[in-house]
Write a protein that binds this DNA or RNA. Sequence first.
DNA 1: TTGATTTGTATATTGTATATGTACAATAGG
DNA 2: CCTATTGTACATATACAATATACAAATCAA
Lengths: 134, 134
Amino acid sequence: MKRPRTLRIELASAQPVYEQIVSGLRALLVSGEFESGEQLPTVRQLAIDLGVHHNTVAEAYRVLAEEGWLDLRRRRGAVVLDRRDPKATPEAKQDFRKHLEELIAKAITNGVPRSAIADRMVEMARKLGQGGTR
Amino acid sequence: MKRPRTLRIELASAQPVYEQIVSGLRALLVSGEFESGEQLPTVRQLAIDLGVHHNTVAEAYRVLAEEGWLDLRRRRGAVVLDRRDPKATPEAKQDFRKHLEELIAKAITNGVPRSAIADRMVEMARKLGQGGTR
DNA sequence: TTGATTTGTATATTGTATATGTACAATAGG
DNA sequence: CCTATTGTACATATACAATATACAAATCAA
C-alpha cells in the first residue's frame, strides 16, 4: 500500500524552500516511508508539484545526496539508498541537545503547554525505542 | 548566586546572528535563568561581548520584546518581564510536532544513536513535568 | 551506431535579507 | 536646561535564495 508522503512547502516562510524540502524529505526517509532502491520524483516533476523551480528541488536533492540518503545521477533520477552506516559526527549529540532546548523554548513562547510538549517528546521517544534500526 | 548565562554566537553559522541571540536568550528565559525585573545588558554592551554590531543585538531584543519577554525602552535598557500569560497560538502545537520530527531526523542523519535521542527527550520531558509554571 | 529525449547540472540574473555605519530621538541625571 | 546614555531609523554593502536559460550526460528506439 502506498502512503501519501505528504510534503508541503510554505513559500511565505522565512526558511528557504530548498531547506524545507530537505527537512521534509529527510523526516520521511528516517521514518522509513521510502524503501531503498525506490525512485523519487524527478526534480522537474517535484518542482511542478510544489510550484517551485526545478533548480530549487535539485539543490535539496543535492544536500540529501551529500548526506548519503540519495544516489543522484543524470537520466536516472534520485534513488533512495540503504544508509545503515551514518558517520557519527562528534558534536552532533551536543548540537541536538541545544536545538532541542531551543525548540522547547520556542514552543513555550508560542503558548504550547509544557505538559503537551512533554507528552509529545515521550511519545516520540517510545517510537524511536521500538522502531527498527533502519 | 549568579549563574554564568553563557551565550555563544557562531558568526560562521548559516543561522543569522540575531536569530542565534534570540534562540539562546529565549532558552535562558524559559529555563528561569533571569528574574523578572532584571536588567539585560545594553545592546552596545552585549554587542561588544559577542563581537557584533549593536544593531544586530537590537534586532534580537526587538523580537523578544514582541514575544513579551522584554520591556524595551530608550535610556532604560531591556528589562525582563513576568510573562505568565502566553497567548496560545492555535497551530503552535502542530508546528512543534513537525519541527521535533525534523530535528530528530537531522540528528539521526548526523549519526546520533536513536537511543541517545530518546533518552534526552525523556529527560527533558521529566524536567518540564517537575518544573514550576513559570 | 546514431539520434532524440529525458534527466541532472552549471551559470548569470534578480530580489530579498542580514549585518553594519552613521545619524537621530528620547529620557534620566546633574 | 544641558549632557550623556540608551534604543531606533535609515541607507548601504554583501551574501544568499530562487529563477531563467542553456548545457551535458545517459538511456532508449530505430
